[in-house]
């Protein structure tokens, strides 16, 4: 972005007003990020660093901590439940992200290019307005094998009753389905906001050149949507790896451990066991490392910091 059509103002070494402004950027930059920096250090960085330290201790937060070196890490790496929880988490992400993102893009494009009805936009965001704990309870009710309306409907049309949350083979996909329901409209609105930043003139020019809607989507919409799409993908993948609320309500990690994702595993260490803070934080550090890796790959691959829009202007 810096290479394109940058006027002299951003080039250091210039004299007078321009140069002074450019030099001020350092001070200004720090000034602008100062409030957020305080919030970040106090509520994110310090607790996170403390967590890393705790992960080398055996500690229940109440009695004295005992330094145990890497023992907590050895514990989780030799725990089959931990490895299984990683595998379940990845399965969940694989169900959740592709379906949710594709649906969100389709809905957003539809809302922007075809309908433009604010009523439809309002409807699509509705599921996100419901707290996720309530959403989970509602779906437990709707998907119940015997009393749930969905199953009564499935039986009537001859598909037959599905256990959904109660079947180890369906449970994780069912949880993914519930979260897709809640989040697709939300992501669609974010993507929609991104679509609105694409200048209409580009489509007009493309139409004049004879490109159809499909070609316009691949040639203009998708490339120019990249910053927003990266944002949606990065945040929803991170969120998806940390799936917890729906499972806590709907399956509590069951049946037979089929929905024990990594956060459920961590939660169990703290609240279902004797506040195994060391093990819980060690597992969190591992999850953190995984997420960092995934995010770096995503941002590198998708060139998050750049916009193709500049190329068109």
């Amino acid at each position: 972005m810096a290479a394109i059509k940058l006027p002299a103002s951003s080039q250091p070494g210039q004299s007078g007003l321009i140069g002074r402004l450019a030099n001020n950027q350092v001070l200004l930059g720090y000034l602008f990020i100062l409030p957020s920096m305080i919030g970040f250090i106090v509520f994110f960085a310090l607790p996170a660093i403390r967590s890393v330290i705790i992960s080398f201790h055996e500690w229940n937060l109440l009695t004295d901590a005992e330094f145990v070196g890497l023992a907590n890490y050895q514990d989780i790496f030799s725990d089959d439940r931990f490895w299984r929880s990683l595998q379940i988490t990845v399965t969940y992400v694989m169900w959740n992200i592709p379906v949710q993102t594709v649906l969100a893009v389709v809905i957003a494009v539809f809302l922007e290019r075809i309908s433009n009805s604010s009523l439809l936009r309002g409807i699509m965001i509705l599921p996100w307005l419901m707290p996720n704990v309530i959403v989970a309870m509602l779906f437990v009710w709707l998907l119940d094998p015997t009393l749930g309306l969905v199953n009564i409907f499935l039986q009537n049309i001859g598909i037959g009753k599905q256990a959904f949350f109660g079947d180890p083979n369906q449970a994780i996909a069912s949880v993914a389905g519930v979260n897709i329901w809640r989040h697709m409209g939300y992501n669609a609105i974010l993507i929609y906001a991104g679509l609105k930043t694409i200048p209409r003139s580009l489509y007009e020019a493309a139409t004049v050149d004879g490109a159809n809607l499909w070609e316009q989507f691949w040639g203009i919409t998708l490339p120019l949507l990249r910053p927003v799409l990266v944002f949606v993908l990065v945040t929803s993948v991170i969120g998806s790896f940390q799936i917890f609320d729906t499972i806590a309500v709907a399956t509590e990690g069951g049946p037979a451990g089929a929905t024990r994702t990594i956060i459920v595993y961590i939660y169990e260490q703290v609240f279902e066991r004797r506040i195994n803070m060391g093990v819980a934080t060690a597992a969190s550090v591992v999850l953190f490392a995984i997420l960092i890796t995934v995010t770096i790959i995503q941002t590198r691959y998708l060139r998050a910091g750049q916009s193709d829009l500049a190329d068109y202007q």
């Binding site: 951003s10 450019a22 950027q25 350092v26 200004l28 930059g29 720090y30 602008f32 990020i33 957020s36 920096m37 970040f40 994110f44 960085a45 607790p47 996170a48 967590s51 990065v234 945040t235 991170i238 969120g239 940390q242 917890f244 956060i263 961590i266 939660y267 703290v270 819980a280 934080t281 969190s284 999850l287 953190f288 997420l291 960092i292 995010t295 910091g305």
Partner: peptide
Amino acid sequence: FKFPLRDQIFFVYLTGLMIPGIV
């Protein structure tokens, strides 16, 4: 703005998203 460590600080901020809430 251009200032030293800008992209590094931004990335560190981003990592805030990756710390499990329970921790």
